[in-house]
Computed example of a mutant assay.
Amino acid sequence: MNLTAQDPGQALITITQRPAAVFVEGQGSWLVDERGRRYLDLVQGWAVNSLGHSPAVVAQALAAQAQRLVNPGPAFHNRPMLALAERLAGLGCFSRVFLASSGAEANEGAVKLARRWGQKMRGGAHEIIGFEGGFHGRTLAMMAASGKPGWDTRYPPMPTGFAKARFNDLRSVEAAITPATVAVMIELVQGEAGVNIADPGFVRELRALTQARGLLLIVDEVQTGIGRCGVAFAHGLYGIEPDVMTLAKGLGGGVPLAALLCQERLNCFEPGDQGGTYCGNPLMAAVGLAVVNEVCREDFLAQVRARARQLSVGLQALVQAHGLVAERGAGLLRALVLPTARADAVVGAARDLQPHGLLLNAPRPNLLRLMPALNISEDEVALALHLLDHALREATE
């Protein structure tokens, strides 16, 4: 089969509209396509590449572990699995860790854990309260758990047991609680919904409410965890301790790795309740350990916060210069809100800039999302803002 430059993906099942460029190389904040054209990447695999493209620590961890042990199977211990679990448990309030391959898988595990706990401790309580605008993955159950409009009806019949409350509205959470409720599941920063930030007062009240009602608080940090918000985990910005947390994306620094973490009292799975062919895979765990050790140093996180301030100030200047609505975000997860539905036009204009392009994401018709590598340099942030300025001008001409 001959693949043309106009349709390089003709052998793929259609799941999205991809531009024609075929990427062949990446280093740090830059991607290169097979024509040799370079792009400054502010998407980074959708907040996946914590250390940018092809970082040495990931390459070295993969090479070293691949020569020792790739996959003994999930029914046996391996040293990288144990080391990563211990490292993650040592970063916060959790004592137990399950390693998986994707954010959706980790979130499914969190729901299973909550329901198993509900069976044992709350008379079979099983309902999970989520939030409008929330996003937890693309499996059937996680689509039902998400608050993305229309997702809970796309592939009927959908799994049940997922109620929805309004983000930053405690009364709506209280109204959604029933005798069957076992947990509340929340993203503290709703990435897919447009980088919507949970109000600190709401989060503190939500934690108090769940504790008072004997419910679990599950924090989905698939996008915000591992330094993305300038701290190890975003819930650290709110001064709370969740009962359960999920991680993925940045945890693997580009490889498929996720984690479900819980407090000791919730370690209630029976053997056989949870698992997966690749859970605790030593190849992926070795990478995750290398990424966590690099990102969760205080000097590294201080640089994340510095670049976040630089990016935020620069975006605020673009808001003023172009008559935009606002910029918002936490750490290096930021959004630029446009006055009209032209985000796709800006993304296209940015990608086509000369002599090199800029890669952006438009999760909403009037919104741009920026998720650069956590080690993006000061000069690269300045260049990105310069290119974005040009793209905004071109998209309005």
Rank of each mutant, 00 (worst) to 15 (best):
D243M: 00
V22Q: 03
L216M: 00
A302S: 06
L140A: 11
L140H: 06
G118N: 09
F131I: 07
R116E: 10
I240H: 04
G73E: 00
F98M: 10
G239L: 09
G26L: 03
C262A: 11
G191T: 11
F269T: 01
L260A: 05
E327R: 14
M142W: 03
D33L: 00
L140N: 14
G150E: 06
I177D: 03
A258T: 00
L140P: 11
G272T: 03
V111E: 01
I13N: 15
Q67K: 15
V231D: 05
L301G: 04
G272P: 01
N293C: 11
E294H: 04
H126Y: 15
V291P: 13
A106I: 04
L247G: 06
G329R: 06
H390C: 08
A335C: 09
E241N: 09
P8N: 01
G92M: 06
M81S: 14
P74L: 07
A59I: 08
N196G: 06
P80F: 00
P256T: 02
P156S: 07
T153K: 14
R328D: 12
Q190T: 13
G194Q: 13
V304H: 01
L12V: 02
G314E: 00
P282R: 03
V195C: 15
M1D: 15
I128D: 02
R96D: 14
L247D: 01
H386M: 12
E174L: 08
S102P: 06
P179N: 01
L3K: 10
G348N: 15
P355I: 03
R116V: 13
I13G: 13
V244D: 05
L69T: 10
C296R: 05
R207P: 01
Q65R: 10
D352T: 09
L188H: 10
A110W: 06
L311D: 07
G252K: 12
L332S: 09
E105D: 15
N2H: 07
D273M: 04
V319K: 02
A212E: 14
E397T: 09
L387D: 14
A56V: 09
I177L: 00
M1N: 10
G147M: 12
R297A: 11
R116M: 07
N168K: 00
L62D: 02
A286Y: 05
D243K: 04
G9L: 03
G137C: 01
I13A: 15
V304I: 04
V22F: 00
V231A: 12
I197L: 14
D352Q: 13
R393C: 13
F233G: 06
L257A: 03
G275F: 02
W30P: 12
Q119T: 10
V325W: 03
L333D: 04
P242A: 04
V173W: 13
Q320C: 08
L332W: 03
L62N: 08
D344K: 13
